[in-house]
Amino acid sequence: MAYSDKVLDHYENPRNVGRLDDSDANVGTGMVGAPACGDVMRLQIKVDGDGVIEDAKFKTYGCGSAIASSSLLTEWVKGRSLDDATQIRNKDIANELGLPPVKIHCSVLAEDAIKAAIADVRKKQGNTEE
């Protein structure tokens, strides 16, 4: 399968690889996927006092497109408010990376990951409304 230049770039030079301290009340973690399905994404965000995402880190087990989708996502969410970040759609990720139809599920997983991370941090901060 041929990969787009953008997928290759994120795969070769993934942005924001790493981990944030999950015990920090300002850190939200979204872990989605399953090893049996061949992809697991862990996306973490850290929000500042104004509810703006100041840092984001990821680690992904999966194909090149899954790695690229999560890497791109960390770039996009930084500096955005939580409300703003919930607006990110898998289609935007798939379009930006030029994912073929068989790889759309990678971008869906990335959308699920950011939603899960946002829900987690809201829950920690005692604000469970979605």
Binding site: P35, Y61, D112
Partner: peptide, 24 residues
């Protein structure tokens, strides 16, 4: 492996078979 959350978990001593995965 540097990129893999599963590797992290393995290194932290998490039993991956016991994790409730959100299958898709």
């Amino acid at each position: 492996r540097e990129l893999s959350p599963l590797w992290d978990m393995y290194k932290d001593g998490v039993d991956l078979d016991q994790v409730q995965w959100a299958a898709h």
